[in-house]
Design a binder for these strands. Structure first.
Lengths: 173, 173
DNA sequence: AATTTTATGTCAGCCTTGTTGACATATCTC
DNA sequence: GAGATATGTCAACAAGGCTGACATAAAATT
């Protein structure tokens, strides 16, 4: 480990061993509190529809990726198909998501948000965006990019390519 | 795009609709994926002890804030005392946390992590720190500060002072 | 054509972690 | 002494994870 080659890893306290990894309590705890509040916004609205966070996640990714298959969705959410099916069934019954048979592979189900589903997904995304914009508003323009790169780097390296494609891959306009 | 259907949402600059708040999908989704992976590291170890994420949160904040009271812990975690008590009881029984009667107010319970508790808390914090350091390692030194300020600003303004004090306030050694 | 693999659905039951409501106890405050 | 406060506890319930087993249709392989 060529520690000195990476300034960010250099120790501020010369006595402390860098390998002991002084815990980054600040970033750990801020992450917890930020996430806690970040997901609380949608909760209130979801309640009115009889939905929970699990429904939100499914609706969000389906709305953002029309034609998503069950397998791809499972890979994104990292839950079992039984867990997914419970909430997905409700979203389909209440007409927020539509499931069509695959065209090339007819075993697959291609998922689409209905107009009603897209509307709710957008409403929730805007809510969260308002919080994000408020946070970014006081910061330098480069900050957003730094935050974005930080979050991306927190993701398991195995998945980062996949996530990158999902998040940035299909930029319309 | 039926922008003209809702006059109140019409933009001054065609194309850039301020009030429509184009969703920050990138930061929304990256936050989800980053958090998903961030909490997954400790999960594996907690399993070996028969603990879950709820135990982790309690142990973490007690370890970081020796003498924390039940009320303060409830305020941090935002859960009911019944939920807290379930996991706290287990942590006390298994000797990871110790509960002492308050000195000035004997109704209060002051919580302390035992040596075993501190050890586990530290082990988990180091695991998460490793992920954080890996993410920061490729970035400019100012990036950490930007991320920190961003996360802090995501928190409900009502709580940010409290969180700031909790996270940065008591820098011991 | 027969077989195997794959994508999905579904039943049944369990666990963790959140919730509400009611009630008990000790201690502090007025 | 009366009332407020900090905590503990019982019971029941809900959301959203999990495992295991089994079913079906369609694709892929042999």
């Amino acid at each position: 480990m060529v520690r000195d080659a990476i300034p960010a890893l250099k120790s501020h306290h010369p006595g402390k061993d860098i390998l002991a990894e002084t815990p980054a309590y600040d970033l750990i705890e801020l992450f917890f509190f930020a996430y806690r509040d970040f997901v609380s916004d949608p909760d209130r609205i979801l309640d009115e529809y009889g939905f929970g966070r699990a429904h939100h996640r499914v609706l969000h990714f389906v709305s953002r990726n029309p034609g998503l298959t069950i397998a791809e969705l499972l890979d994104i959410l990292r839950i079992t198909k039984q867990s997914l099916n419970r909430v997905l069934k409700e979203l389909i019954e209440k007409d927020f998501i539509e499931s069509r048979m695959g065209t090339s592979d007819r075993r697959q189900r291609l998922l689409f948000a209905t107009p009603q589903g897209r509307e709710l997904a957008l409403k929730l995304a805007k809510l969260q965006t308002r919080r994000i914009m408020r946070a970014l508003s006081g910061m330098e323009p480069e900050a957003k990019d730094a935050v974005s790169r930080y979050l991306l780097s927190l993701i398991d390296p195995n998945d980062s390519a996949h996530v990158k494609h999902l998040v940035f891959g299909s930029e319309e306009t």
